[in-house]
Simulated scan of single mutants.
Amino acid sequence: MRRRRFVAGAIGAVSGIALGTVPSAAVKPTPAGTRNRSPVSRAEGWQAVPAPGSTPAAQLRRIAAGPGLAWAVGEEGLAGPSRGRGLAMQWDGSAWTKTDLAHLSHTRLTDVAGVCAAFAWSVGQPAGTGSPLLRWDETTWRETAFPGMNETGVRLTAVAVGPDRRVWVSGSRGGAARLLSGDGRRWRWLDPLPVASANLYRVFLRAPGEIWVCGDQAAGGGWSGLVARWDGAWTVLPPVPGLRLGLADVHAAGPDDVWAVGTEAGVGGPPGRPGNPSLSHWDGTAWTRVEAGFVAGSLTGIAGDAQGRAAWISGWNYQDQSRSTYLRRDGGAWTLARGPVGAAPAPYLNDVTAVRGTTGFWSVGMTSPVPAPPTEAYTERLEA
């Protein structure tokens, strides 16, 4: 069952929603369903970095980065009825270069992960049956074989790579959500997630052998947020509170310090109605809802700092689209932060990631919130 999600492009006129001015204040955890003051908005040194060469409409969905290198993936050529084609870019320490994917037929690359210039992985949306698992060969992306490759109903949705170069891929096979694990040569599917009608959208590796996933699950005619941990067996946390909530990312500093972000669709509304940003914290006992600082939009990704703590969240603020939107961890609170002015007409961020081994960060998305021409791929950087 594939549920409706408020992702990039699901935007339009808003009706029946009060969109007022957001006051300034710091945000601290509050019980689910309560209100809190909104965070202070301030500039944080993010700079737009040109990512030339994409064919409108285009967007970058995910990014992985290390010192002097990065990979970003998404889709381009979304014009009229076109399903588009996969888009991949590489950062060489000084500029982004579009990667030639003429040998691939995939309509979208959905995630990317890597540890060095010779070891990176991506997954994509198939043009036919089966999802592709792609490996970077230091020049371009190539398909690699895995159990269930080209099998009808197999879908790969996200990927993570550990410092031991173990690869973890979320997806589904045989009608159940699962993890695929391997070292590049040998692969195996792990036990199914013990949740009916679940979709997984992100994989987070906290430590070798401890993998977290997030997504959504069927609930009472709608869906709720799903977070689970694999450490040799599945542990499924209670559903994240929210009305038709889909989670885009999860970050775990420990079993009692887990953050989940996403978009709450709510009770519905006119076509194109934006959802509501959702930020929740697990303390080992219960989920606590935290105010995001704006009421219409989305939260799309989380990045940790050098100590493994959640540090930055990427998002989209429907109420103020003049520049990109972030939440920054400031002690025990989250603070609303903004990107550069005038860098793009109305930038939409899909992801944020730390630059491994440094204190820098990258974010990616598109130059406007609607994936239609002339929208192009977009990146921002926060240097150490």
Results as ranks from 00 to 15, higher is better:
residue 230 W to G: 10
residue 262 G to C: 10
residue 378 Y to D: 13
residue 292 A to H: 06
residue 60 L to K: 03
residue 347 P to A: 03
residue 11 I to V: 13
residue 354 A to W: 07
residue 279 L to M: 12
residue 13 A to P: 04
residue 366 M to F: 01
residue 159 V to G: 00
residue 187 W to K: 05
residue 350 N to P: 00
residue 203 V to R: 04
residue 124 G to D: 10
residue 205 L to G: 06
residue 16 G to S: 06
residue 176 A to Q: 15
residue 208 P to Y: 04
residue 184 G to W: 08
residue 250 V to D: 11
residue 9 G to T: 05
residue 335 T to C: 10
residue 312 W to F: 14
residue 131 S to P: 02
residue 321 Q to E: 15
residue 110 T to Q: 06
residue 82 S to M: 01
residue 6 F to D: 13
residue 171 G to R: 00
residue 16 G to N: 03
residue 87 L to A: 06
residue 299 L to Y: 06
residue 85 R to A: 06
residue 194 P to K: 06
residue 314 S to W: 09
residue 65 A to R: 15
residue 130 G to V: 03
residue 170 S to R: 05
residue 257 D to R: 11
residue 198 A to K: 09
residue 131 S to G: 12
residue 374 P to E: 08
residue 373 P to M: 08
residue 251 H to Y: 10
residue 358 T to S: 15
residue 168 W to N: 05
residue 135 R to C: 09
residue 172 S to G: 12
residue 366 M to H: 06
residue 304 G to N: 02
residue 296 A to M: 01
residue 253 A to N: 13
residue 215 G to E: 04
residue 130 G to H: 05
residue 301 G to C: 01
residue 56 P to V: 04
residue 341 V to P: 07
residue 322 S to W: 07
residue 17 I to A: 09
residue 347 P to L: 07
residue 379 T to M: 13
residue 140 T to Q: 11
residue 309 R to S: 15
residue 179 L to P: 06
residue 263 T to L: 03
residue 358 T to R: 10
residue 216 D to S: 13
residue 75 E to H: 03
residue 63 I to W: 10
residue 222 G to L: 08
residue 57 A to E: 04
residue 5 R to N: 11
residue 375 T to Y: 10
residue 8 A to S: 13
residue 169 V to R: 03
residue 238 P to I: 08
residue 173 R to N: 10
residue 161 V to R: 07
residue 197 S to C: 07
residue 32 A to V: 14
residue 69 L to I: 13
residue 40 V to E: 15
residue 222 G to V: 04
residue 178 R to V: 12
residue 60 L to H: 05
residue 135 R to M: 13
residue 5 R to Y: 09
residue 38 S to T: 14
residue 218 A to S: 15
residue 42 R to Q: 11
residue 105 S to N: 15
residue 312 W to E: 09
residue 375 T to N: 13
residue 276 N to S: 15
residue 355 V to L: 07
residue 166 R to P: 00
residue 125 Q to D: 15
residue 277 P to W: 02
residue 157 T to C: 01
residue 84 G to M: 04
residue 332 G to E: 12
residue 368 S to D: 13
residue 353 T to K: 01
residue 28 K to A: 15
